[in-house]
């Protein structure tokens, strides 16, 4: 029963990994661009949630939406002021732009919020549910289900709506999309906004159940790399499955080996993936 509980916990956390990783994979698919600051977006989402709760006293619905909105604006602003100008530049500029951004965001957070571990005050989602003998904290269940719903909604938005199709058209062939009257710049700005918003919500959802400090961004960023590589670059459904798998692997390695090994196992998996299957599980060679 304990093992089953560990598995459920891992999958629920994995659903959140899937949510923030789908933004990273979307941007990679559209622009062949790796965002090294993606984990920092998640971290900022957590602090937005904290500030909303402390200052305004809102519940999870309020700070979830606030995190999404704040990060959407930040994502679009970063695209327009920085990313747009470096995508056509040398590789060095592409990588340094978001790598420098990650440092800037991480250490600004250290400076403002200090390195102390913080957590949200008890929210309305306290308590533990007993589902057929498996104990699941209500907050984790709500967070995992919400994350899954949003990830699926993102996928449906991309594949089922006109705007989403325009976005994917730019991803497939920028020039052809331009000839069809789509403005790639707008679509890419939208993609950055959506990716950051997804990371923001994911951060807010995790903030409900887990304590954190500014350094979590680095861990989440690397986790997102692993998820996206496993799922195949550019594939939102791939990120979804891979997120669940990574969450499960983490939970099991923490259970069998000890909590300090959960990240070690995942990063080692990443190194192995690069050697044996860099295109991921669902990707094509």
């Amino acid at each position: 029963m304990l093992l089953l509980q560990v598995i459920v916990g891992g999958l629920l956390l994995g659903a959140i990994y899937a949510l923030f990783s789908s933004g990273l994979t979307l941007i990679w698919g559209m622009m062949n661009f790796i965002n090294f600051a993606h984990g920092e977006f998640v971290m900022l989402g957590m602090y937005v949630a904290l500030m909303i709760v402390v200052w305004l006293g809102g519940g999870p619905a309020v700070f979830g939406i606030a995190s999404a909105f704040a990060l959407f604006v930040l994502g679009v602003a970063i695209y327009l002021s920085l990313i747009r100008h470096v995508t056509r530049g040398p590789m060095l500029a592409q990588i340094l732009s978001t790598f420098g951004l990650a440092l800037l965001l991480r250490y600004t957070a250290f400076w403002i919020f200090s390195a102390n571990v913080v957590s949200l005050p008890q929210t309305s989602l306290g308590g533990t549910l007993n589902i057929f003998g498996i104990l699941v904290p209500a907050a984790q269940l709500v967070a995992g289900v919400t994350a899954t719903v949003i990830t699926i909604a993102l996928h449906l938005f991309l594949t089922g709506t006109t705007l989403g199709s325009q976005l994917l058209a730019v991803a497939e062939d920028r020039n052809a999309a331009m000839l069809m009257g789509i403005r790639p710049d707008r679509m890419q700005a939208l993609a950055w906004g959506l990716a950051a918003a997804g990371a923001g919500i994911a951060g807010a959802l995790m903030a409900i159940s887990y304590p954190w400090s500014p350094s979590v961004g680095e861990t989440f960023g690397l986790t997102a790399f692993v998820v996206v590589t496993l799922g195949g670059f550019g594939s939102v459904p791939g990120a979804m499955y891979a997120g669940l798998i990574i969450g499960l692997i983490q939970a099991l390695s923490a259970f069998y080996l000890g909590p300090i090994y959960k990240d070690i196992v995942v990063y080692a998996l990443f190194a192995a993936l690069l050697w044996f299957r860099p295109q991921g599980l669902l990707g094509k060679a």
Partner: peptide
């Protein structure tokens, strides 16, 4: 913070 800022400015 300064390092991060300098790196972003160089890249941009």
């Amino acid at each position: 913070i300064l390092y991060g800022g300098i790196i972003v400015l160089i890249a941009r």
